[in-house]
Design a protein around this nucleic acid. Structure first.
Length: 167
DNA sequence: CCCTGATTCGC
DNA sequence: GCGAATCAGG
């Protein structure tokens, strides 16, 4: 079995509906749970629209599959320097809903996750491994007149609900 | 033991 | 890009 466009779409749909990896695998047929998880990661859709009632894990890194220790890659980690506030409102306009996100989309969350306006920046990511576009990565964000320097989405109270590097 | 997702890396 | 193997957990 290969990941045809159709099967990929089905996977994406079921996963975002909140089915577990094994459930998705059973429904698709011909693929293992691992295959589904691998594909989900490559698609960059780690966070689901409807979280499973029991999220089994809390994002722990697994050691190397072999004994071999290699230098830790900095792949899924958020940028070391947290992006700052947007300088203008235009910078905050989302271009993507969660269904539009792909591997190359900036995952900066915008709006209220429980509201209709919620979306993601969606502009091209600066690097393949990173999470954000150039603006959201590079410190193009400035503090507002208040003087505070924190992520815009954190200011809106989203921080407790959204883990940007896993979206 | 059943299950969950996360991660690595040979292929 | 793919996914088995292996990890940390519920």
């Amino acid at each position: 079995m290969d990941w045809s466009e159709e099967r990929t779409a089905t996977l994406k749909k079921l996963w975002l509906e909140g089915l577990s990896a094994s459930q998705v695998a059973r429904q698709l047929g011909g693929v293992s749970r691992s295959a589904v998880i691998g594909k989900v990661h490559r698609l960059g859709i780690t966070v689901r629209e409807v979280p499973a009632r029991q999220r089994a894990t809390t994002a722990v890194r697994a050691p190397s599959r072999l004994q071999m220790r290699r230098p830790a890659r900095e792949t899924t980690a958020a940028p070391r320097v947290a992006p700052r506030l947007a300088r203008t409102e235009e910078d905050l306009l989302p271009t993507s809903g969660i269904l539009d996100l792909d591997v190359h989309s900036c995952r900066w969350p915008i709006g209220n996750p429980e509201g209709d306006d919620f979306g993601f920046c969606g502009r091209p990511k600066l690097t393949a491994r990173g999470s954000y576009c150039e603006q959201h990565t590079a410190g193009a964000f400035r503090r507002l007149s208040g003087g505070q320097a924190v992520e815009a989405w954190a200011l809106k109270g989203l921080k407790e609900r959204v883990r940007p590097n896993q979206i």
